[in-house]
């Protein structure tokens, strides 16, 4: 017994180091599994509060730019409203006419795009009836999916995250695949598992698919920049240039699918 205590006392620095290092590794591994990073995320009162405070100051610097983005969106929506075409024929997605989805506006208070796994923090939380697995879009396209909420803040798993998988399809042919990111450029994401029968041209529009309960069908994502067959030769890998400028996000919309629970209860959940 004496020897054990002596051993601990002699190596206490190393033991403390080993303990803390193991703890950090544990936290890292845990944060790598989706929906499990409960302990450390920026949607807590401390970091959320600090980010909110600084965002209160810094948001004035790009007010003009954000205003232009909003005016642009307004123009687009007005042109739909006053045009004689039917809604289905229009260029724009059919978002406002889908009654199954509820929209909540929020402000991005922390954005990151240079890391390998990027997250955003927004200033709305459970208090504003936001919950895990709600989609987040901006006026130009998809931003990400909520993966953690606290009372006043929520964390968004950005599309620029190597763990992110979003169901997406070609706008003209409905061939679908999943959208992921290779961690390289914040402007380009990859769409994988598109069957090779699909006819793809550079510049084709990619939109969200209706297969997931998170996003409504038809939200714009980006346009095809280049495409290649994968190793097996059966599927295409597409490089998709995002419509969204992920480095400059101000106002976003959080989407709640009101029927999500009902749809999920019908589908087997073992993905």
């Amino acid at each position: 017994m004496q020897q054990i205590i002596n051993f601990i006392l002699r190596n206490k620095s190393f033991l403390l180091f080993a303990l803390l290092f193991a703890l950090s590794i544990f936290l890292t591994i845990q944060s790598n599994s989706y929906h499990k990073s409960k302990f450390i995320n920026s949607a807590n009162a401390l970091s959320g509060g600090v980010y909110n405070l600084t965002n209160g100051i810094t948001q004035y610097f790009d007010l003009k730019e954000q205003n232009e983005i909003l005016t642009e969106e307004n123009n687009r929506l007005k042109s739909i409203l006053y045009s004689n075409h039917g809604y289905q024929e229009s260029e724009v997605d059919s978002l406002p006419y889908v009654p199954n989805f509820k929209f909540i506006t929020a402000t991005v208070i922390k954005n990151s795009y240079s890391a390998y796994n990027n997250y955003l923090t927004i200033d709305k939380g459970t208090k504003d009836s936001i919950n895990v697995d709600f989609g987040v879009i901006s006026s130009k396209g998809v931003v990400g999916i909520i993966d953690n909420v606290s009372k006043n803040y929520a964390r968004v798993l950005s599309v620029l995250n190597t763990k992110s998988r979003i169901n997406a399809e070609l706008k003209k042919t409905n061939h679908f695949g999943s959208l992921k990111w290779d961690g390289k450029s914040p402007e380009v994401v990859q769409l994988i598992d598109i069957p090779k029968q699909a006819e793809i041209k550079i510049g084709d529009t990619i939109v969200t698919g209706g297969l997931s309960t998170i996003f409504p069908k038809g939200i714009p994502i980006g346009s095809v920049q280049s495409f290649n067959l994968d190793e097996t030769g059966n599927y295409f890998i597409l490089d998709v240039r995002l419509f969204n400028d992920m480095t400059n996000l101000g106002n976003v919309h959080v989407i709640e699918n009101i029927n999500a629970k009902e749809i999920l209860s019908l589908e087997p959940t073992d993905e």
């Binding site: 290092f21 950090s24 920026s42």
Partner: peptide, 18 residues
């Protein structure tokens, strides 16, 4: 905590401190 990175900064800091 602030940069949503799990425990990577903690691990690196503990190592250099040791």
């Amino acid at each position: 905590l602030f940069s949503d990175s799990g425990g990577i900064h903690a691990a690196a800091c503990v190592t250099i401190a040791y």
